[in-house]
Structure formats: C-alpha cells, structure tokens
Amino acid sequence: MSGIALSRLAQERKAWRKDHPFGFVAVPTKNPDGTMNLMNWECAIPGKKGTPWEGGLFKLRMLFKDDYPSSPPKCKFEPPLFHPNVYPSGTVCLSILEEDKDWRPAITIKQILLGIQELLNEPNIQDPAQAEAYTIYCQNRVEYEKRVRAQAKKFAPS
C-alpha cells in the first residue's frame, strides 16, 4: 500500500471527524483483525431537504486505489439507486470521479460526498449510466419523482 495514499486518507479521516456536513457519514471499514482499512470507507449521503430525495439516507462505498490521490476513489451505492447517473452496479457516474475528466488530487472526501448529493437531485442527462431511470427522467418527470420519493422512504434511517 502506498504511504502517500494512507497518509492522505488519515488526514481526510481526521478532517472529517473534526468537521463534516450534518447527516453525512464517512467511516473507514475494519479489517478482520480489527485494524482500520483506510482504503475502503462506508459512507452515507442524506437526501437534500426540499427535494424528492429528502428523508432518505443512501449508503455508498468509497474504494481507494494505491495511487490515490492521483486517481479518484470508486464510489458505489449499496444497494444501487434508481438514478440516471448511477450504473446498474451502483457505481456513480460523475465527472469529478473520473481521472480523465474533472478529478483533481486536491478534491476531498467531503467535496465528493457533497457533489454526489447535488447530483442526486440534478442528474447530468449528457452522461446517462442507467437506461430506465434516464428514460423516465426525460419522458415523465412526475413518475420519476414518485419513484425517487418511494426510494427515499425505503432508505429512511430507522
């Protein structure tokens, strides 16, 4: 494992614990031996107030490669969400998460999670990743928002 990646992720964890947006979660997972795995984080993004996503808490896994922060983490909703920019596998399609697009090593975990929260309610229809959600979003916004509200209710924190 890269010392650069681990040191950056340790800084990220410290900064997150000191200050993070209300309702968001970002925690490194534990290895079988109980030690912390900084390369694999369990996160959760709350649906934004005043949107059909409100009330939901959407679980996301963030996986970092050894060359982080040169390369972005892979962000994957578990379980996958109904959304035009979420692949059926759950992987998020967002330009700041793509090395050859808008990724920059200075982007923080907090910025990534806030960017994904923004994307939930403002899909990028130029870059669809899920045919069904994309089609319904474009053709029947009322039905799309109904499905999103049902999903938010399903993923409401207990």
Rank of each mutant, 00 (worst) to 15 (best):
V92D: 07
L9N: 12
L120V: 06
K14I: 09
P72N: 13
L63K: 13
D127F: 04
S7T: 11
Q126P: 04
G3V: 10
N121P: 06
R147T: 14
S158V: 11
W103K: 01
K48I: 07
G56V: 00
Q111W: 14
P21S: 08
N40T: 09
L114P: 14
S158F: 09
I45E: 03
F82G: 04
P52T: 12
S71I: 08
P123K: 00
Q130Y: 06
P123F: 02
G55R: 07
V25P: 04
V142R: 14
H20N: 00
F77G: 00
Q117Y: 10
L114S: 12
V25L: 09
E122R: 11
F77P: 02
P105C: 12
E132C: 09
G3M: 15
L60P: 02
P72F: 00
T108P: 11
F64C: 08
I109F: 08
L114K: 11
A133Y: 06
G56M: 07
E12P: 02
V27Y: 10
R141Y: 10
E145V: 13
P46F: 06
N121A: 11
C75G: 11
L38T: 09
L63D: 14
L119S: 06
Y134Q: 05
D19I: 04
I45D: 04
Y134N: 05
N121F: 02
A15G: 10
K110T: 05
L60I: 13
E145G: 06
L63E: 15
A156P: 10
P32R: 15
C93I: 00
V25H: 09
T108Q: 15
N140E: 12
V148Y: 03
S70N: 14
P157V: 04
L60A: 12
T135D: 07
D66P: 12
E118K: 10
L119K: 02
F58E: 05
V86S: 10
L119V: 07
K48P: 15
T108K: 13
S7D: 06
K14T: 07
A156C: 10
Q117L: 09
Q130E: 08
A131S: 14
F77N: 00
S70L: 14
D102N: 08
E12R: 03
G23V: 00
D100M: 15
S70M: 10
K74E: 15
L9F: 00
K49T: 08
W41F: 06
I96D: 11
A150R: 12
L119C: 05
H20Y: 03
Q151F: 05
D66N: 10
A156S: 10
K154D: 12
V25G: 06
Q130R: 10
V92K: 01
L94E: 06
K14R: 15
L97D: 08
A150M: 09
Y87W: 06
K154Q: 13
F64K: 03
Q111T: 13
F64N: 06
S89Q: 15
K146H: 14
T135A: 12
N40L: 13
A152E: 03
D127K: 00
R147H: 09
K14W: 08
H83E: 00
P128Q: 02
K14D: 04
A133W: 03
E118F: 15
E122L: 10
S7L: 10
Q130H: 11
V92Q: 01
F64T: 04
L119A: 01
Y87S: 01
K146D: 14
S158Y: 01
Q139L: 11
Q151G: 06
N121Y: 09
P28M: 05
T135F: 11
S71K: 12
D102Y: 09
F77L: 06
L9M: 05
C138P: 00
C138K: 13
T135G: 06
K110I: 07
A26Q: 04
A152R: 01
I107K: 06
E98T: 08
Y144K: 02
A131I: 04
I45T: 10
L63W: 00
F24Q: 02
R8I: 00
Q139P: 07
E12F: 02
N121E: 12
Q117S: 11
N37L: 09
E98Y: 15
N31I: 10
L97A: 11
D100K: 12
L113E: 02
P105I: 07
L38C: 07
V86R: 02
L119E: 05
K18A: 05
W16F: 09
S89A: 13
F82M: 05
K74V: 15
A156K: 05
R104C: 11
L38P: 08
N31S: 11
P123H: 01
A156N: 04
S71M: 06
L120C: 05
N124E: 03
H83D: 04
S7I: 07
D66I: 10
N121C: 10
D127A: 05
R17G: 02
H83S: 02
V92Y: 04
G56T: 00
V148L: 06
S158D: 03
A44W: 09
Y134C: 07
F82S: 01
P73D: 00
E122T: 14
R17T: 01
L60N: 03
P46N: 07
E132I: 06
I112N: 13
K101L: 13
L120I: 07
Q11E: 11
F77Y: 03
Q11A: 15
G90H: 01
E54L: 04
A152P: 01
E118P: 05
N85W: 03
F64P: 06
E12S: 04
G50W: 05
T108V: 15
K153T: 08
R17E: 03
L57K: 09
E143W: 08
K18T: 07
F22A: 05
H20V: 00
Y87H: 05
I136Y: 11
P69M: 01
L57A: 05
K48M: 10
P52W: 11
P21C: 03
P46T: 06
D33S: 02
R8S: 02
K76G: 13
N31D: 05
Y137G: 03
R149I: 13
F58W: 04
K14P: 01
N124F: 08
P80I: 07
L9K: 08
E98G: 15
C43D: 07
